[in-house]
Design a protein around this nucleic acid. Structure first.
Lengths: 336, 336
DNA sequence: GTTGGTTAGGAAAATGGTTTCCTCGTTGCA
DNA sequence: TGCAACGAGGAAACCATTTTCCTAACCAAC
């Protein structure tokens, strides 16, 4: 039922080898022949079977995208730009949500290899560095997204987390806050944000307190719990820098439950600038990542790698930007 | 470099035919043979090349999921449950965002056919009924998700939109609202919600006014614009039923810009119960769809169809549920 | 007119499986 | 002991391509 290369060949009065050459634009032949074949292909609305091509070693035209969780708005937003760019460039993507779980990471990697994806975009932060190294050594075109571990020497595109952490913290410090808690994930990018937080403190001549660093994983509920935890202690902060919007929102909800008024009693800065940051009341001050640029760039890079260009490892860092909305205020207001 | 069926056959001292039979669990053979082959497969960590299998007419183990926009939280949440269930059952998915755009729908359909997906889950509401019919006739296993057009006679799983519209409106009516505007999309499911809205009015002995139906497409900005539009007219409603959370949030933002207080001045009900409904302040009263159940069910159905079971057309309707939060109030409060 | 160099285009192997017969050895029964 | 029936496993065709040689035709030059 599907039209094959044989039918095209027959109709055009040539051999399948010739048709194949027309398809791939290889080999030499008379223009008249090429044109004739192309005409027939058009007539028959023929397009080569990707499975068969893949079998003989050609690309599959697909790549895998590993994210922690596609239902997390940050990742669904970036997935969308990746999807668009990929299709623009003739590729399709398999999306897998790993939940940052080692078992799933491994399983999906296995699966994607079997599907013979041409490349891999990894936005899930492999806690297991070994498997990442293996992957790198195994020749599969590979780009890290949203995480940037210099020690691995893998091409990556991400936001400058250090700067992001620095900006967020500086913003808070500039408003007079001195006791700022940072709620971070256990990922490398969070680590860099913590360094930025630390650096900002130093610039302001303040000491970095290890106690002010809380770790959790990204979810609203976790953010809420952290808030509880923080306010159950005696040393209550005046500001919180949450390493992503989900956590920030959890914090906001927790605060509301406790009758803490934002930003008067507590300033909050998030990270990612997802759609969620615009829908809260008060709207969330957050650090924005240039999602669209990042998605586009990462696709372009992986396609280059697939095509064998650009063998040099590249680390692309986009600049984050503070989006000031309504969850941060001068410390004085509180004193009032 | 990849281990093939030939190597397995050689190591096990059998022919590739036998190995194939072991893989597919077909044919007769001595248990000892089967075991031996299985042992070798394990040793070599062999798994069959899906491309080769697909070439010979077997399934590819993939299916396509067409959604309007994966960055829309409702769809990313449902995509996640679909993804999980699909992987559980050994399938992978290609996700495509159509933006409800005819050109893209067509393009992606074409693409997915070429990729020889085993089936299609369509959550994007094809305005072009013809191509949906063609699809249906073309034998590809097909399930509609989130939309349910009885006239098409295609297997579908969705929420009972009529009931949803009815519940949302009844809730508002029961709170004393008499002038309720409904902001709907131009999709079949919105149509059913409008019917529900209408039915609820009739039950309350109220007339249905065509003027109270506003149409737009799903986005925050559109919701905002609708609010403007509504309040620029002389006949101002006391409640708005938005056919999805995005629009509802737009309405809330628009209201805030105009100094309209929710729910005192205006009650709002959304639809979908996405994560967004929980993050607004006040939290959005909305109609929830059992996303997890729907995602799981749709995957199970499509797999049944792929396997050739369940040829009878099935229409699964899940019951929506009103989640009362903080954006709806008794009309009296306003009078006070 | 023969030789040699190009070139267009084709034959066939290879890719990694599935599947349809076949064959051959064993068993059951008369 | 002889024959049919059956069960285990293999040979080979097939799926839709790509790719590597080949071959034959053509032309120029000697």
């Amino acid at each position: 039922m599907k039209v094959t290369i044989y039918e095209v060949a027959e109709r055009a009065g040539v051999s399948i080898a010739t048709v194949s050459k027309v398809i791939n634009n290889t080999g030499k032949m008379r223009d008249s022949t090429r044109l004739k074949v192309m005409k027939v292909m058009k007539e028959l609305n023929y397009s080569p079977n990707p499975m068969a091509s893949a079998l003989t070693g050609k690309r599959t035209g697909t790549f895998g995208l590993l994210v922690p969780d596609i239902s997390n708005p940050f990742f669904s937003e970036i997935a969308r730009t990746i999807e668009d760019r990929a299709h623009e460039r003739g590729m399709s993507i398999f999306i897998c949500s790993t939940d940052e779980n080692e078992g799933k990471e491994k399983k999906y990697l296995e699966l994607l290899r079997r599907k013979q994806v041409d490349g891999l975009i990894i936005a899930s932060s492999f806690h297991n560095k070994t498997s990442l190294k293996e992957l790198k050594d195994s020749q599969v075109p590979l780009v890290l997204l949203t995480q940037d571990d210099p020690s691995l020497g893998i091409t990556s595109v991400s936001v400058d987390d250090f700067v992001g952490g620095f900006e967020a913290t500086s913003h808070l410090l500039s408003k007079g806050h001195q006791n700022i808690v940072i709620i971070a994930e256990t990922t490398p990018s969070s680590k860099m944000r913590i360094y930025g937080y630390r650096e900002a403190h130093e610039r302001y001549g303040l000491n970095f307190k290890e106690d002010n660093v809380i770790r959790t994983t990204a979810s609203i509920i976790n953010g809420k719990e952290c808030l509880q935890q923080i306010f159950d202690k005696e040393d209550i902060p005046t500001a919180i820098f949450a390493c992503n919007d989900l956590i920030a929102i959890g914090v906001m909800q927790g605060a509301k439950g406790r009758g803490i008024v934002i930003p008067e009693d507590l300033s909050i800065v998030g990270f990612d600038n997802t759609i969620l940051a615009t829908t809260t009341v008060p709207a969330l001050t957050t650090i924005s990542q240039p999602i669209k640029d990042m998605g586009t760039k990462v696709v372009d890079i992986i396609i280059d790698e697939i095509k064998g260009k650009n063998v040099s490892r590249e680390r692309v860092l986009f600049l984050p930007k503070l989006i000031e909305r309504e969850t941060t205020a001068e410390i004085q207001e509180k004193v009032k």
